[in-house]
């Protein structure tokens, strides 16, 4: 039995009320959407705020709609809704697919897209009960001053483990952010940082309100693949999002490849423009992309599965991603 600590549970109906509550109780409050990440973490004693501000009852955080050349998805929409919504499936089947790969059906019914984007980083030595963590000795991310993953490390490298952000980054999505002080927007590719303690450019009193994705050109093909131990329940051991634009002759006009579940920040693979743009995705070119990706990916012991194996899977899954795109062009886009 895992008990929660006492707290006050606020259920505002309007966004401005929620933002006021976050400001008023600053330092002793957290937003809660589906709670599928936060509640287990609180049960493990990783967070103990005196106040929770529930987001699901706020209308402004709901809705999936097309407007101004974008698809806008409210942060409190469930992953089940994202995975099954016709507009998401029409425009971005790879996003629907990524959402459908999160955890298992009940978690997707409860968990939200906003919560997935704001998911706390994860680590073998962190996502454990208080008893477990005390027995081993606490770590930097919670209560301690050492890192168990990087000997002598002074920086937390817990893994970014959410399934939707990599594909959202490849699709050039932005998030709208609100606080009692105002609103702003940021590209998701600028949102994450490499700091495992808090890997988001998000102030503690701010909320992600909406995700916006530019509607794709017919040239765009995208896919998301996830490596995990079981085909359900499990977080990614490694995940790859790939988006390419192919012109009529099959030449790549652009390429975006993101690898996640390594460190705290999804890694945007660099140097691919030179290797791939202006060329067809032949076996040789795909192999060159796979090699370039392998060179830039160094899994860490923050996830319990062997790092050598996870690294060896990087080029394998890059090839599989290209195969998925080339086998079924529009269906995966």
């Amino acid at each position: 039995m895992l008990r929660l600590h006492p707290y006050v549970y606020h259920r505002p109906r309007r966004l401005d009320e929620a933002l006021e509550l976050l400001k008023e109780h600053s330092g002793d409050v957290l937003p809660i959407a589906g709670g599928t990440d936060l509640v287990p973490n609180m049960k493990h004693g990783l967070f103990a705020p005196g106040h929770l501000v529930a987001l699901k009852g706020i209308d402004e955080l709901h809705g999936i709609e097309e407007r101004d050349g974008e698809l806008a998805i409210g942060a409190a929409e469930s992953l089940t809704a994202v995975a099954s919504h016709p507009l998401v499936n029409d425009h971005f089947p790879a996003l629907a697919h990524a959402a459908s790969l999160v955890a298992h059906p009940m978690i997707r019914n409860q968990g939200t897209l906003g919560g997935n984007i704001c998911l706390d980083t994860r680590c073998t030595y962190y996502n454990q009960t208080h008893f477990w963590r005390r027995a081993l000795g606490y770590c930097l991310k919670k209560d301690g001053d050492v890192c168990h993953v990087v000997a002598g490390g002074t920086k937390c490298v817990a893994a970014h483990s959410a399934d939707t952000p990599p594909i959202l980054m490849a699709l050039d999505a932005a998030v709208d952010i609100a606080s009692a002080d105002g609103e702003r927007s940021i590209k998701l590719s600028d949102f994450f940082t490499a700091d495992g303690m808090w890997n988001k450019r998000l102030e503690r009193h701010e909320l992600v309100t909406r995700v916006r994705i530019p509607l794709p050109s017919p040239k765009l093909h995208a896919t998301y693949t996830k490596v995990r131990e079981r085909k359900s329940v499990d977080f990614p051991l490694l995940s790859i999002a790939l988006a390419v634009e192919l012109d009529d002759s099959g030449v790549m006009d652009s390429i975006s490849l993101i690898v996640a579940a390594l460190g705290a920040k999804p890694r945007v693979i660099g140097g691919l423009d030179k290797i791939a743009v202006g060329k067809k995705p032949t076996d040789d070119i795909v192999e060159a992309v796979a090699r370039q990706t392998y060179r830039q990916c160094n899994p860490l012991d923050n996830i319990i599965v062997e790092i050598e194996w996870r690294r060896a899977m990087v080029p394998v899954y890059v090839r599989r991603s290209f195969n998925a795109i080339l086998a079924e062009p529009r269906a995966t886009a």
Binding site: R11, V39, L52, N109, Q110
Partner: peptide
């Protein structure tokens, strides 16, 4: 809708 009651705050 199938829901995990162990991680659902009762107020929900």
């Amino acid at each position: 809708v199938p829901t995990l009651s162990c991680i659902l705050p009762v107020q929900e």
